[in-house]
Amino acid sequence: MTATTNLLAFLGLVVALLFVWRQSWPSRLRLFAAQSAVLALLATAVGVLAARPGLVVLGAGFALVKVWIIPRVLRRIAAGAPVRPGAPGRSSGMALLVAGALVVAAYVVMLPVHAATRLPTQGAIPLAFAMALIGLYVCVTGRDALGHILGFLVFENGVFGLAILATYGLPGIVEAGVFLDVLVIVFIMEVVVVQVRREHASIAEDRLRELRG
């Protein structure tokens, strides 16, 4: 069980790093779907190995929402946006370096948790946390509204992985609430982005400064 969860969490982290590396939104969207699929598998694997059928159902629901519904909505949001926002030819090296530092930070921060738990999944906890931090980092450095939304979703994926690994799954009602929140956030963002684009003919970050009071 440990090997499986470690492997899946590691794959999730690799996808998160690829996410930092790639800059065009179609490939980022594909990577987000891939990461969501990996996490759905992780939930299913923990559910099967720990004999908790609730987690298997949760994995299926997660896959439905994050591999299918949300990417479809995001594609609708992104229609017409430039594929590669910001300056062309800009290297991702610095961003990858920061992401690497965040992985180290995640390990440091999770040391006490690691020491305190005796779960078979404990080795994968820092990996999931690193995913969350990298998601937040992508959110911070996003150059347009789409970048922010995708970063936030990766962050949420990391939090989901962390919850699965650290607790063997939260109560169903909590998970359902979180999913609904994320879905609603995506829909709200869709409205906001469409509105911003109508007002400013762009969703680029630097144009949003004009909104300052």
Partner: peptide, 22 residues
């Protein structure tokens, strides 16, 4: 502090999170 940059606002959250966790 209110620069108008959403990136900066999000960075506040990230930094606060990491500082709090550390």
């Amino acid at each position: 502090i209110q620069s108008g940059s959403a990136n900066l606002y999000l960075a506040y959250i990230l930094v606060a999170l990491i500082v709090l966790l550390v």
